[in-house]
Amino acid sequence: MTTTPTVEITDDVIRLGQFLKLASLVESGAHARDLISEGEVKVNGEVDTRRGRQLRKGDVVTVDVPTGEIGAIVG
């Protein structure tokens, strides 16, 4: 089992779409938008379809991909 990496942010909050790109969980902003709108992204274990969702330190973001699930922790 692999550990989930922590990705540091510079501010107190970051938008979901921005974090997906920062954490290299998606290839582009358009890819992030598509995955979020398709319900493939979870925040703290719950599907969230709001690209502008404000994330705070400690939030866990996961993305369902064909090979399984990848994720990162907001740090």
Rank of each mutant, 00 (worst) to 15 (best):
V41A: 08
V61C: 06
E8L: 08
D34C: 07
D64V: 10
M1E: 10
G58L: 03
E8S: 12
D34R: 05
G39F: 01
A30M: 05
G75H: 08
L20Q: 15
T10W: 03
L25Y: 03
S28E: 10
V60H: 11
R33P: 10
G58T: 02
I36V: 15
I14W: 13
I14V: 12
V13G: 03
V61I: 13
G52K: 03
A30C: 07
Q18R: 14
G17V: 11
K57A: 07
E69V: 14
T10G: 09
E40M: 06
R33Q: 12
D48T: 11
Q54F: 07
E38G: 02
L35E: 04
L55Y: 06
A30H: 09
I70C: 05
V74A: 04
V41K: 06
G52P: 02
N44M: 04
L16Q: 05
M1A: 08
T67L: 08
V13C: 06
A23T: 05
D59P: 02
G71M: 03
E40C: 03
I36N: 09
I9G: 08
L22D: 07
S37P: 00
L20K: 06
R50M: 02
V43F: 02
L22T: 12
R51N: 04
N44G: 06
P66L: 12
R51D: 09
M1V: 03
R51A: 08
P5M: 00
S37A: 07
E46D: 15
Q18P: 00
G29W: 04
D48R: 11
T62N: 12
N44W: 03
A72I: 13
R56T: 05
V65G: 13
P5D: 01
A23S: 07
L35K: 13
G75W: 02
V7K: 12
E27R: 15
L25F: 11
K57F: 00
K42R: 14
G39R: 01
R53A: 04
S24N: 13
V47R: 13
R51V: 15
V60I: 15
D64K: 06
E38P: 00
L35C: 13
I9L: 06
V13Y: 12
A23H: 02
E27A: 13
A72R: 09
T62Y: 03
L55H: 09
E40W: 14
V74F: 04
V65F: 08
E8H: 10
